[in-house]
Write a protein that binds this DNA or RNA. Sequence first.
DNA 1: CAGGGTTATTTCGGACTATAAACTAATATC
DNA 2: GATATTAGTTTATAGTCCGAAATAACCCTG
Lengths: 402, 402
Amino acid sequence: MAKKASVRDVRRTNRALLVRHLLLGGETSRSAVGFDTGLSPATVTSVMAELLNEQTVREEGFLDSVGGRRRVIVGLNPDAAILFGADVGETQVTTAAFDLTLNRLGSRTTPFADRRIEPEQVVALLIEHVDALLSELEINRSKVLGLGLGVPGIVENPATEARKLRESIVHAEVLGWKAVSFSNLSTTLGFPVYIDNGAKTTTQAESWYGSAKGIDHAIVVLIGDGAGAGIITNGRLYRGSSSSAGEWGHTKISLDGVRCRCGSYGCVETFVGASAVLERWRGREDTWTGRETEGIAALLEAFEDGHPQAEDAVRSVINHLGLALSNLVNLYNPQKIIVGGWFGDQIAERFLEEIGAAMRRFSLEQPGSEAVLERSRLGNDAVALGAATLPLDRFIEMGWPQ
Amino acid sequence: MAKKASVRDVRRTNRALLVRHLLLGGETSRSAVGFDTGLSPATVTSVMAELLNEQTVREEGFLDSVGGRRRVIVGLNPDAAILFGADVGETQVTTAAFDLTLNRLGSRTTPFADRRIEPEQVVALLIEHVDALLSELEINRSKVLGLGLGVPGIVENPATEARKLRESIVHAEVLGWKAVSFSNLSTTLGFPVYIDNGAKTTTQAESWYGSAKGIDHAIVVLIGDGAGAGIITNGRLYRGSSSSAGEWGHTKISLDGVRCRCGSYGCVETFVGASAVLERWRGREDTWTGRETEGIAALLEAFEDGHPQAEDAVRSVINHLGLALSNLVNLYNPQKIIVGGWFGDQIAERFLEEIGAAMRRFSLEQPGSEAVLERSRLGNDAVALGAATLPLDRFIEMGWPQ
DNA sequence: CAGGGTTATTTCGGACTATAAACTAATATC
DNA sequence: GATATTAGTTTATAGTCCGAAATAACCCTG
């Protein structure tokens, strides 16, 4: 449970605090860092010297004087290391390279058909992408801190520690994966590989750079064909005992109802997922399978044109989504709920107010009045970006390998 | 978000680790403590000397030699301090006194009628109880570390830190309390007062001493007339952004249904709460209001006798409870779910298997297979016991006042 | 352009920590 | 009684942060 502490841990904590501050706050001066973190100037100098020495941080000129000695600009050295983030989606694999400040340096995407791809193919693609990016960017493999992998499905994770994510087991129903391990990928690539659920990596990205930045209690809700959620509690991504927390799409809000792909009935996904919504709008024709985005566009158009059935379908989504969100509000008491995912983006763009009103109507007053509903600010890149935060987070906490 | 660390924090952390170890593990030897905590023998000696010096710990004899020097028995000194825990229920106020090892030294209970009591009356009762217990036990007021207060309702808590609980605001609908503050109680009593929701204090007790002991991810579900939950994530009680997390009883599992006392429809409470169950069994007659325990006894008897309506009512509880629990499983991925509360105790006693089966049926496979359903091991005392852990926790983390 | 004021950063010494290693204590065993 | 064994303490050392003083590098004024 609790862990012992030693003097070394103090340095590690403060070092991480500083690096994280520079990452999220950008360039500043030593004195500002001291003020913001509460560390004494002496300590800032000391830790910064260590970081400068190992090239993690660089001095980048001076800020104008404000009456005294000019401030030295310090900031993370983007070129100090490279991070890869990969997004294994339902239709394509995207691998992106980032520098230490999480600027995207380049990316590779390979689509695949029929929502089917074997783990071995993914491994091959990842190796190909990484190699291509490394030579394109003319970067030495030794500079790579690691690869983060966002996958659709449950990632089982023996130890809670992020450092052990490499030994994870992936169950991705959508892709037909059962108990898949990527343990050998790391050896082939020559650097650590970290795996997490795509919704969770997106949440991580949203928490570091998006609408949930700096928020201690936030929930990121992702709605596409299906629905998932990532939960930030006390400033950190909540994983549960085996990393499968946040399966909001399969919580039940009805005692009966349409059968869900998970095998059960009444799941949130069967009320607010794009496929389900289309099915409800047009009946069980399977007309839109594989073309859900077009279907939703058609639905929204029909709504604008005032078609009653379309209106019913949209109202139903708003209502059920509000109810499903209120369950999160009552259980987690978050400061913010962020709606994303391709379908979530679209309905939130037009109906954010209505959804928020429905959510508050179903919530208890106190937590309901505090929960702010917002749209996601990050686009499709969020999965890969969030995945890249996995090795970066480890770097921040633990420093350079060895 | 993150906080800076200093060398002092190291000592505080290790001291807390040791005290907590002695509290939960009972008496041991220095060498065993070192082995269990990972601290070096030298450090154990040093910290233990500090604790001995301030009387928090005492040496209590020797363990037999196992081939070398005999081990000195060290353990918390129960008489070092006194803690009060109070349970403000819907029908009575109970105040209990505990020693430092949370042994119950005595208690006072005062019932009240009609589920109505004014905050001022509670304050008066608490002062009376405390004074009575202090003189009964012949204890000096200066030895009291604090009073923890478990109340039915939402406790709003400006700061997340437990140390600020004294400035909390209480909303207790059942008692007709709106935005009540107990800020002056602490001054009158002469020691700190900490307030939390009763379900949360029970959860704390369950986490320290009951079925959730040592479990990092657990949920305690309390079912009486209403329903609530306490959530342990990463070994700590989860409070949310304003301490109102865990309102499981008012999450919705149906799109329509009976009106809940919270004003909404479809709440879990309206399916599994004792009052609601009785209403469903016997119709809206209000026959059992104020005598719910008798009603439930009658229901269970009728069930045993094979009355079909009773059987329907019981099956309905099992089913809905299983579903409502599955939502917790999918969202939190806990290792354990503990069922308590007076009604929860009774149904779990007879139908734990069935409820667990229903829960797993509605859950996703992976988190569902991991979540163990158990009965609470603590009785009615749990609220007061858990409340007493509030000042105790602060003592463990921060040491003696000043 | 010299000198005083101001702000930023570094240096230095002090106070605390944990720990390894050496040491002392107290027992069991032969 | 000698030796081995285990428990616990003392000592020396290496980190650690931080306050205070020192230094650096500027602005402003006359």
